[in-house]
């Protein structure tokens, strides 16, 4: 049995919110920086050059890559040998978000009621996904998500007969419908299987996976590769202004599902695909 105090969680989440918003993970950064060589459109190249310069300014001056610093999505995988001491864990997470968004000069983009729409002024609450896992650590992923691309995401309850072709069509259609609104070049997270809510969480989780680590399942790995190629044939291009680079990466997560169903969720993200992972 290991004891972890909630102050530790708060402190780490504060730092992770700031870190995620000023610098990208190496895998994502690498793809942004190498996109220029692949792009043939002159306008597309200029967009990519601006993004490159933008990343450098953000990292050097420690200012947010994008003004939409997102709603903070937090995945907490708590080892079952851990005993948590201190405050309620949810309060500890939200306190970390509050401090991070205040001290990092990040934008407060959360409203307390979806219809009354009053800004909470501290970017809380976050969206927290808990899981209980073996071991005596707590793994935290902080993934602030911008809503330009979030608004273009979709869930489709396909039927088994739709099969792999149905999945491909769903993904391509979502990307085409999003077009310039998702700030291409984008990163695509796909969840297949589970049920209505499970596939959505899988899609979000897929966005947090390293882009250089393909799916462990051969048929899914193939699908990831094929879909990325297909997306880049749409010619949406950087900024939606036409070109070859529409997506920088595509990850798929899967889960068993019901004999009658084939849920698919497509969570689109811009190149500002923020995610920081720490293990306490």
């Amino acid at each position: 049995m290991r004891i972890i105090h909630t102050d530790e969680i708060t402190k780490n989440i504060r730092e992770m919110c700031i870190e995620a918003n000023v610098s990208l993970s190496e895998d994502v950064k690498k793809r942004v920086l190498s996109a220029k060589e692949k792009e043939e459109s002159a306008l597309g190249k200029r967009v990519l050059e601006q993004l490159e310069e933008n990343l450098a300014i953000a990292e050097n001056e420690q200012i947010p890559i994008c003004q939409d610093t997102g709603m903070a999505v937090v995945f907490l995988a708590v080892g079952q040998e851990v005993r948590i001491e201190g405050t309620a864990i949810e309060d500890a997470v939200n306190e970390g978000i509050r401090q991070g968004y205040r001290d990092g000069y990040l934008r407060k983009s959360v409203v307390s009621d979806p219809l009354l729409r009053e800004n909470t002024k501290d970017n809380t609450p976050g969206i927290i996904h808990y899981s209980i896992v073996p071991g005596e650590n707590i793994e935290i992923i902080v993934a602030p998500k911008g809503f330009g691309s979030e608004n273009t995401s979709r869930i489709l309850m396909l039927k088994p007969a739709d099969g792999i072709e149905g999945v491909k069509q769903a993904v391509l259609e979502t990307v085409k419908l999003a077009g310039p609104n998702a700030c291409p070049p984008m990163i695509v997270g796909v969840g297949i299987g589970g049920d209505f809510e499970k596939c959505a969480i899988l899609a979000k989780k897929a966005l947090t996976r390293n882009l250089d680590t393909p799916s462990p399942f051969p048929h899914i790995r193939e699908l990831e590769k094929e879909l990325l190629e297909e997306i880049n044939k749409t010619k949406i291009g950087p900024g939606g202004l036409g070109g070859k680079v529409t997506a920088l990466g595509l990850n798929i997560e899967t889960y068993p599902t019901h004999i009658a169903g084939l849920p698919v969720a497509i969570n689109l993200c811009c190149h500002v695909n923020r995610h920081v992972k720490r293990v306490l």
């Binding site: 601006q50 993004l51 933008n54 890559i65 994008c66 900024g239 500002v272």
Partner: peptide
């Protein structure tokens, strides 16, 4: 259109 996601650059 300005470039989406280039907020740090555009602030300059």
């Amino acid at each position: 259109a300005a470039v989406g996601g280039a907020g740090a650059f555009l602030s300059k």
